[in-house]
Nucleic acid binder design. Structure first.
Ligand SMILES: [Mn+2]
Ligand SMILES: [Mn+2]
Length: 659
DNA sequence: GCGCTAA
DNA sequence: TTAGCGCAACGCAGT
DNA sequence: ACTGCG
């Protein structure tokens, strides 16, 4: 009608293809209110039609091309004068009362006939290169109605009307033999997912079940006595009961034929009520529709009646339908519609990030929520102060955490509350400025986190990250560690002097191997001695070497050091923890804050500071900058300049793999 | 902190 | 809508 | 084989 601009503006349009359908959520009643419109629910095949450049393709709900089954409908659709379009609707066969009949539909299609079918259309996603999916439903339907009025379809292609709220609409439709109602928010967009802005309400309790087996009939000529039904819950097959009525001669015979083709399997249920009797169990692959009056308390169907086989659903997707209380559904729908409306809000370019969320602060290009949240209750340190710490320290910490696989200790509330490690990026959502890095882990590869810059660092803090635990390797050479670490873990009873001596001894032993090492506090009670190395040898070699060093120290000073992680055996000694030296093991980074009261910071030290008077607790998020400002030189200045490696002979002597 | 699922 | 949940995972060591 | 530890 309006703008039928045949002259294209040189825009090469991507070929239109199948896309995921909007699916309705099952509700237990029809939602009320002016925001909702209501349509008849049909009992047929959901069908998406793509018209492109004169070609009509009709897809099933799962994207299968069923055009040839619907040849007559497809032919009629060619009467539409459009360059291209995507239409959504349901293919049905009407019975004598004008209600859609699924069994009649199957009979027609089984006979290869489509000339008596109807296609009810209720949505228009694309028209003449215009994407309508973000338009409100009522607007899409208005365009659809207008479009369908431009051609004569002899009542085979029909606009599915909607109605405003009417008292007793559902009982009325049910008395007319309809399947139910689909209620839709008039202002909802087409998301292509299951949505609560579309709610379906059924007249009868009916749903699909997996056919898990059958029982034999006493009567020759009857294909079977009943079908055994199941559904999946948490990936496990559950028994739902038997259905023995609703069949006719043809369906009995046809289904038995199909069942015989399936492989017999052992009884898939642990315990079954005895009344089920002997049955033949088959591979759970066939799906059928069953109407019933209710679920018994034992979880079985009451008065089930077979309604037909369904071929458009995979067995494993069949679960027990549970209708959502309509009040909850309606609230969720409201929220969905509001969220959808918020997204393209580019009205005021000056608007702050995350409009509608007050009190956010921008730090280094990252929007920080809840800046005043107290993260360290003992010090009263807020989230914003933590963020500012990492902003200030970014230059110093980034060389230790960027471009490597990175694990994170997250604390969404405060350090006295819940804490958890995270090393994968979440499957849904994700974090801005944080990327995936693929790491091969025993014959498969997994995705871990990586950041590259201060924005990534701050994004992780916004995400609740406090402690940064980089892996001992760079992201692009994960199998070749670029540092060794000795993590000195003192027993609570161990004298501080032993820790000091332990670190000094590690340093001296490294010197004997020609290796320069670096000292830092952990932010907690221990110390770290870190040895940067050229990525050259693999983890087994490096771990084996550090283990040998730890065991040698424990051997020489069994009163002070132990190389065994057992806490019981530690008593008053230092555990020389060499186990950090493995692919998936981590250690706290230099300059990371620890998520414990005191907000200790892992602080690089000069070896000259290694004295009993050393007080690691003096270095925390509030005090560290005083120290850094007062320093005339960086004790770790050479950390990234040192290029050193273990001599292969050493590894050989330890019978460790070289390369 | 945040997205998912269930109700 | 709200409530509740998960958010690492592997080798070492002791039983 | 199961459990605590880092
Ligand atoms: Mn430690
Ligand atoms: Mn340790």
């Amino acid at each position: 009608m309006d703008d039928q601009g045949y002259r294209r503006k040189s825009k090469p349009v991507a070929k239109l293809a199948f896309r995921d359908l909007e699916l309705a959520t099952l509700a237990d009643a029809v939602p009320a209110g002016p925001g909702w419109v209501h349509e008849v629910k049909f009992d047929g095949y959901r069908t998406l039609t793509v018209i492109d450049d004169g070609a009509v393709t009709m897809y099933s709900r799962s994207g299968l091309d069923w055009t040839t089954k619907y040849a007559e409908i497809a032919r009629r659709l060619k009467a539409l004068k459009v360059r291209n379009a995507i239409l959504d609707g349901e293919i049905v066969a009407l019975n004598a009362h004008g209600a859609s009949s699924f069994s009649k539909l199957k009979a027609e299609l089984g006979a290869g006939r489509s000339e008596d079918l109807q296609y009810y259309l209720f949505d228009l996603l694309v028209l003449d290169d215009e994407d309508l999916t973000r338009q409100p439903l009522v607007e899409r339907k208005r365009r659809l109605e207008t479009l369908l009025a431009t051609a004569e379809f002899e009542n085979h292609i029909i606009y599915s009307e909607h109605f405003a709220e009417k008292a007793n609409f559902l009982p009325h439709l049910c008395s007319l033999d309809m399947e139910g109602i689909v209620s839709k928010r008039g202002d909802s967009i087409y998301t292509g997912r299951r949505s609560k802005a579309w709610l379906k309400v059924k007249c009868h309790k009916r749903q699909e079940f997996v056919i898990v087996g059958f029982t034999e009939s006493d009567h020759a000529g009857r294909g079977f006595r009943s079908l055994l039904l199941g559904y999946y819950e948490d990936g496990e097959l559950q028994f739902a009961g038997k259905v023995g009525t609703g069949f006719n001669q043809d369906t009995l015979f046809d289904i038995r034929k199909k069942l015989d083709k399936l492989k017999a399997v052992p009884k898939p249920f642990k315990k079954l009520p005895p009344d089920v009797g002997p049955g033949t169990w088959v591979q759970p692959s066939m799906v059928c529709e069953v109407e019933f009056t209710e679920w018994t308390p034992e979880g079985r169907l009451r008065h089930p009646s077979f309604q037909g086989l369904r071929e458009d659903k995979a067995a494993t997707t069949i679960g027990r339908d549970k209708a959502l209380p309509v009040e909850i559904a309606a609230k969720a729908a409201q929220a969905e519609v509001e969220v959808a409306a918020e997204k393209p809000k580019r009205r005021h370019p000056a608007a702050p990030l995350k409009p509608g969320k007050a009190g956010r602060v921008d730090v280094g290009g990252v929007s920080i929520s809840h800046p005043d949240r107290i993260v360290f209750p003992d010090l009263g340190v807020t989230k914003l102060e933590l963020v500012r710490y990492y902003e200030q320290i970014a230059e110093r910490i980034l060389p230790h955490v960027a471009n490597r696989p990175l694990s994170l200790l997250r604390v969404p509330d405060n350090v006295d509350g819940q804490q958890f490690f995270q090393r994968h990026l979440p499957e849904h959502g994700g974090v801005p400025n944080v990327s995936d890095v693929k790491i091969p882990i025993k014959n498969r590869t997994e995705d871990y986190m990586k950041i590259e810059d201060a924005r990534g660092l701050l994004s992780l803090v916004q995400w609740g990250g406090i402690e940064f635990h980089p892996w001992g390797c760079q992201a692009d050479t994960p199998l070749l560690p670029d540092r060794m670490i000795f993590d000195l873990d003192p027993d609570p009873e161990a004298p501080w002097s032993s820790v000091i001596e332990g670190a000094a001894e590690v340093r001296d032993r490294m010197n004997e191997f020609g290796l320069i090492s670096f000292l830092k506090t952990t932010g907690g009670k221990g110390l770290h001695v870190v040895v940067p190395i050229v990525p050259k040898f693999g983890w087994p070699a490096i771990k084996g070497f550090t283990k040998a060093v730890a065991e040698s120290m424990a051997h020489d000073s069994p009163d002070r050091f132990i190389a065994n992680m057992s806490k019981a055996k530690r008593k008053g000694r230092i555990f020389i923890d060499y186990l950090r030296n493995d692919l998936t093991s981590t250690a706290a980074a230099a300059f990371t804050v620890r998520a414990r009261s005191g907000a200790g910071v892992s602080t690089p030290l000069n070896w000259s500071e290694l004295k009993v008077s050393l007080k690691p607790s003096a270095f925390n998020l509030q005090t560290i900058f005083r120290r850094l400002k007062a320093q005339t030189s960086d004790p770790w200045a050479d950390y990234f300049a040192v290029r050193q490696t273990l001599r292969p002979e050493i590894l050989q002597a330890l019978k460790l793999p070289i390369e």
